[in-house]
């Protein structure tokens, strides 16, 4: 059994986008803060810290889920995919990212990382979704700029439909 005292800094190692990285966290440190301020992965954004807005969504251990409702110490040894891992190492955008660009599916881009991570996992599970299914998946995200229409189009395009 693992026990970490409230003020004890624990070494946490996670595999982010295929690479094992480590940092230190007290038990109460949110995974979002750990990713951003401990590991320097600023691509994951924080919009509400109470699990509603979806901006911080990452793929954690194979599930697209809120990273603001996880504590870093819970994630020791897990595999996490973040927005930084989507494009090719040379910066070439993947199909989903290209579709977002071509369809105007982002404006300020603050919520975008979370939506990309949800959509990535969603399309793996449901490669040819209907627009209603896309909207249902998107209901777990808040985007204030786009009105969502162009996001739906982009995801549909990325699914090859």
């Amino acid at each position: 059994m693992l026990r970490i005292k409230p003020d004890q800094k624990q070494r946490v190692t996670i595999t982010v986008n295929g690479k094992a990285v480590s940092g230190y966290a007290e038990p109460r440190m949110l995974l979002t803060d750990f990713l951003r301020h401990e590991l320097g992965l600023y691509g994951t954004h924080v919009g509400c810290e109470h699990g509603v807005c979806g901006a911080c969504t990452a793929i954690i251990d194979g599930a697209a889920t809120r990273s603001c409702l996880r504590y870093a110490v819970q994630c020791d040894g897990l595999d996490i995919q973040t927005v930084e891992g989507l494009a090719d190492p040379d910066g070439t955008l993947n199909t989903l990212q290209k579709a977002f660009n071509e369809n105007g599916a982002l404006q300020c881009g603050f919520c975008t990382a979370g939506i990309l991570m949800s959509s990535t996992k969603f399309l793996q599970e449901n490669p040819k979704p209907t627009d209603d299914e896309i909207r249902d998946m998107l209901s777990g995200h808040i985007c204030r700029c786009t009105g969502y229409t162009q996001i739906v189009r982009a995801i549909r395009q990325a699914s090859g439909q």
């Binding site: 026990r3 038990p27 810290e49 110490v73 819970q74």
Partner: peptide, 17 residues
């Protein structure tokens, strides 16, 4: 919006929990 400090316990079995 950060939690209060707490001890983190991760039991491996129901008995430990």
């Amino acid at each position: 919006m950060k939690p209060v400090a707490f001890e983190y316990c991760r039991p491996d079995t129901v008995e430990e929990a």
